[in-house]
Design a protein around this nucleic acid. Sequence first.
DNA 1: TGCGCCTATGTCAGATATGACATATTCTGT
DNA 2: ACAGAATATGTCATATCTGACATAGGCGCA
Lengths: 102, 102
Amino acid sequence: MKAAKRTKLESKGWKLGSTADFLELTPEETAYIELKFALSKSLKERRTREKLSQNDLAKMVKTSQSRVAKMESGDPSVSVDLLVKSLIALGASPKDLAKAIA
Amino acid sequence: MKAAKRTKLESKGWKLGSTADFLELTPEETAYIELKFALSKSLKERRTREKLSQNDLAKMVKTSQSRVAKMESGDPSVSVDLLVKSLIALGASPKDLAKAIA
DNA sequence: TGCGCCTATGTCAGATATGACATATTCTGT
DNA sequence: ACAGAATATGTCATATCTGACATAGGCGCA
C-alpha cells in the first residue's frame, strides 16, 4: 500500500492492513480489518468476473452504487454483514466465502 | 429444530435454518442465516472449550452477558460483525473462521 | 429449602450502518 | 480531445445494532 493512500485512510476513519505497527492497532483489530479487505477483494473479483457494473450489483442487493463502491474500497462504514450479503447475492457459497477469508 | 422453537422464532424476528420452505425465505436469506448460525455455534464451542462464562467473554469483547447470550442463540439482532469480532477475540484465526462456515 | 452462579429474554437510549442523493473523478472508446 | 459510462467521495436522515440494565429460569450444592 502506498504511503499517500495510507495517510489518507488514516486521516479519516481507518487504520489498516500492513500498517498495524504504524498505527495503534491491536492484533484483533488487524485481523478484523484484514478480514474485511479479503471480502472486499473477493466481492470486486466476483462482480468483475460477471461483468457487472457497480450499479448492476447495487440493484441486485437493493443498495446504491455509492455503497457498492465503498464496499469494494474497504470503507470503514461498511459492515461485514453487507459484504457477506452481497457476496451471497453474487452466488458465493459458504465454501467460496471460506476460501475468500482463509 | 422443534416446532415449538420454530414457531417462537417465527413469531419474533426470525425465519430460519431448515424451515426455509415453511417460511418465505429466498435462498440468499437462508444462506445468510445459516452462516450466522454456523458462527454462533462456533462461538459457543470456543467459549465452552476455554471454560469461560458468558460474562467472561463479555468482558473480553467489551459487551454484556446478555448480548453474548443473544450471539450464541442466533438472535436476529446480532450482526455478523459482532460474531466475527468475538470469535477473533477468542483467538480464532482466518482459517478457523473459514472452517466454521464452510 | 436457600444460595450462588450461569444463561435466557425483554427493553431501550444511544451508537453505528444504511440507502440515497449530489457531485467529482477516472476510464474507454472514438 | 471529447462524450458517456463507470467508479469514487461526501453528506445526511432514517434504520438497524449495540451495550446496559432488569429480571426470570436453570442447575448444582450445602
